[in-house]
Every structure is written in structure tokens, then in C-alpha cells.
Amino acid sequence: MLLRREPVGALEAIERLGGMQAQAPNPPYIGLWSRVEGFEFDEVSRLMTERRVLRIVLMRGTLHLVSARDARVLRPLTQPLLDRYLTGPAGWDLDGVDLRPVVDAARALLEEEPRSDKELRSLLGERWPDRDPARLGWAVRLSLPLVQVPPRGLWGKAGTARHTTLDAWLGEDAAAAAEPSIDEMVLRYLGAFGPASVQDVQQWSGLQGLREVVERLEPKLVRFRDENGRALYDLPDAPRPGADEPAPVRFVPEFDNLTLSHADRTRVVSDEHRKRIFTVNGIIRATFLVDGFVHGMWKAEKKRGEATLRIEPFAPVPGPERAALEEEGMRLLAAVHPDAKAHAVEFVS
């Protein structure tokens, strides 16, 4: 949906993308603004308060914005990844600890009312004073499907992150409609990000051993080879634009699926520039696209009532694309900071 904005609702767009990385609350809104025709920021906030869209830990063990339907389907499929974290080297100090009563107690506490991590740690520490409450809280987050409830995640709203269980948030009756299928998960991924390799699917999901799944699905797929001879798979009727397809300038937010959903992203960003947008502390910086390729980074801020978009190119931007970036940047600022008394786009070295 970056070649042309699609006339779809936010819910459909989120599902078509297989969910959106949501480590920070605001980036998914920008990602949808760049993909959806006539996108209104309040639409996602409304979907969240109506419990049709929610924030939950899924692929790669990271927070995602997904539909309620997808949360039910994807959360059980990503549990093996979270179990691997729990039983791996990071969980060494929990060896021999019976976590079942801890998880059961946490479930009851979180279903009683949404609680912050700090509140949960304090309550667990009272019951297990001989254990590190921070580590118990970490184990609970890996063991239970937890929803980060509003107002956290609503556009323009601030608030402490508080959690309850997926069942408590959606109602246990909704669980009966969920049919988790790893095959369907892979097909959904290819629908959003194909053509892609087995390694790409594993990078996106965080799961291992998906080669046999892809091989089982191969009769339903089309297969290609990239420049390095790697097998790429796609859905037969998926759009595959040619190299001459025009690609307009686009602003892509932090943590966007575009930069996180493949093992090999050289189709959109060079390895050299990827190192610049992936920071050592886990931040994936916002980028902008010129002709479908990452050409630099951007940042928007508002000070003393004036909103400014600063564009940092990796290389000189040709005149027509520079003008298009200025125009698109002004539209972005108007959407993000509609109450600013002035808007400006600046190019910085």
C-alpha cells in the first residue's frame, strides 16, 4: 500500500499488513496515513476503544497493533517464540521455579483490573518475597496473552501502560471462533510481504523451522529466484509491479513493517543505510522513500506552537522528488499537528 494509497478502512489495512509493529504508540498511525486514502487518526483510536483493534505482544516478541480477530489467531502461534525466551539463557535465574502458581495469580490480578508492570511486580513481590519481582513479571508477560489497554496507544493521549488478559478484554466466548493455523499465518505473511524467502518469514514471525511449512504450501504458491539464487515465494494472484512502476515519495515511521519484515531488505534499503536506521538501543528510525527506496531519515517536532519536519537525506535528492517531499511533508505535518500555528519542512545534512 505504499505505491498508492488504498481506499480501505483502517481495520482492513491493519489486517492486510498482518498487524503493525507498535513499540511506540504513534508510529502505526503514521504508517496508516501513508498507506490509506483519507485516513483519519481518530479512526484507530475509536477501533481501540471499541476493542476491535488492540496492542499485544506477537511476532518477534514485540508489541503489535492488530485486529481482535488476528490477536486470537496469532497469539497462540507465537507462543513457542516466547517459550524459547523463557527457557533460554535469559531465563537462567528462573530455573527450578514453578511458574504455574505465579502465572495463575497474575492472571487473577490482571483480570480483576488492568494493572501496570510496577503494580503487578509489587503484588507478586508480596506473595513471593524470596523472588525477584521484576523477573516474575517478565515471566508473566511471556506466559500470558496480555493486552495493553487504552488510553495507552490512543492518538494524542498519554498514559501508563496497563495490561489485562486477552480473554478478559475480548470475552472468553470470542475464543471459540479462533482457529490458529501456522499455514494460514505464512499465507497471510506472503499476502502482505511476498515475494519472500523462508528466512524472511522466519525473520518477520520470530519462529523457527518454517521451511517445512513453506514446502507443504508450495503447490499453492508461485516460486521465483532472486539475484543470489534464493527461492522466493508468493501467492499466485498477488500484485507484482514491474521495475518501471512509478513509486511516489512516502514517509515511513519508526518500527515500520517495511524495514522489519524481511531478513533481506536490500530491495528497499542498502546494508550501509540500514545500519544507520537501526540503532544500538533497538530504535528503528523513521525513513522516507524516493522511487521505492529508503533515501534518508526524518523527524517531526512541535516547539512553541510551530511544527517542523526535518528531512535528512543520505544522498542529494533530485529537484522533482525534493519538491514532492516538501509537499508530502506539509500534508503530514497538517495531519499530525493540525493545531500548529505554522508548518515548515527543512532539509538538513
Results as ranks from 00 to 15, higher is better:
residue 157 K to S: 13
residue 147 V to G: 11
residue 167 D to F: 06
residue 179 E to L: 12
residue 144 L to S: 00
residue 182 I to E: 15
residue 180 P to T: 13
residue 139 A to S: 03
residue 151 P to K: 03
residue 148 Q to S: 14
residue 156 G to V: 02
residue 176 A to R: 05
residue 163 H to V: 08
residue 174 A to R: 15
residue 173 D to W: 10
residue 170 L to E: 02
residue 158 A to E: 10
residue 160 T to E: 15
residue 158 A to K: 11
residue 163 H to I: 06
residue 157 K to H: 14
residue 143 S to R: 05
residue 140 V to Q: 05
residue 155 W to D: 04
residue 151 P to Y: 04
residue 185 M to L: 15
residue 144 L to G: 00
residue 179 E to C: 11
residue 145 P to L: 01
residue 136 L to Y: 10
residue 173 D to L: 10
residue 177 A to H: 09
residue 174 A to V: 08
residue 144 L to F: 01
residue 167 D to R: 09
residue 160 T to R: 12
residue 143 S to H: 03
residue 180 P to M: 11
residue 150 P to D: 06
residue 148 Q to W: 10
residue 154 L to K: 03
residue 167 D to A: 10
residue 146 L to H: 03
residue 181 S to I: 13
residue 151 P to Q: 04
residue 168 A to M: 06
residue 143 S to Q: 05
residue 171 G to I: 04
residue 136 L to H: 15
residue 185 M to Q: 15
residue 157 K to F: 13
residue 137 G to I: 10
residue 181 S to N: 14
residue 157 K to Y: 14
residue 164 T to F: 07
residue 154 L to E: 02
residue 155 W to M: 04
residue 137 G to V: 11
residue 139 A to N: 01
residue 185 M to G: 13
residue 143 S to Y: 02
residue 183 D to K: 07
residue 151 P to M: 04
residue 156 G to H: 02
residue 145 P to I: 00
residue 145 P to H: 01
residue 182 I to A: 14
residue 164 T to Q: 08
residue 157 K to Q: 13
residue 176 A to D: 03
residue 162 R to I: 04
residue 141 R to I: 07
residue 184 E to V: 15
residue 161 A to D: 08
residue 170 L to V: 07
residue 155 W to Y: 02
residue 177 A to E: 14
residue 162 R to G: 03
residue 136 L to M: 15
residue 153 G to M: 02
residue 151 P to T: 06
residue 143 S to L: 04
residue 181 S to L: 12
residue 184 E to A: 15
residue 154 L to V: 02
residue 152 R to M: 10
residue 178 A to G: 12
residue 146 L to V: 03
residue 183 D to Q: 11
residue 181 S to G: 14
residue 154 L to S: 02
residue 181 S to Q: 13
residue 175 A to M: 11
residue 178 A to K: 10
residue 171 G to T: 06
residue 148 Q to N: 13
residue 149 V to P: 00
residue 150 P to V: 05
residue 165 T to S: 11
residue 161 A to W: 07
residue 141 R to G: 10
residue 184 E to P: 14
residue 159 G to R: 00
residue 146 L to A: 04
residue 147 V to D: 14
residue 157 K to W: 12
residue 156 G to K: 03
residue 175 A to S: 12
residue 153 G to C: 03
residue 150 P to K: 05
residue 142 L to A: 03
residue 141 R to L: 06
residue 163 H to E: 08
residue 177 A to K: 09
residue 148 Q to Y: 09
residue 183 D to C: 07
residue 162 R to D: 03
residue 156 G to W: 02
residue 171 G to L: 04
residue 163 H to K: 09
residue 146 L to E: 08
residue 171 G to F: 04
residue 156 G to C: 02
residue 142 L to N: 05
residue 150 P to H: 05
residue 183 D to A: 11
residue 155 W to Q: 01
residue 154 L to G: 01
residue 156 G to N: 01
residue 168 A to P: 04
residue 185 M to R: 14
residue 163 H to C: 06
residue 180 P to R: 11
residue 181 S to E: 14
residue 161 A to H: 08
residue 152 R to I: 06
residue 170 L to M: 07
residue 152 R to L: 11
residue 172 E to I: 09
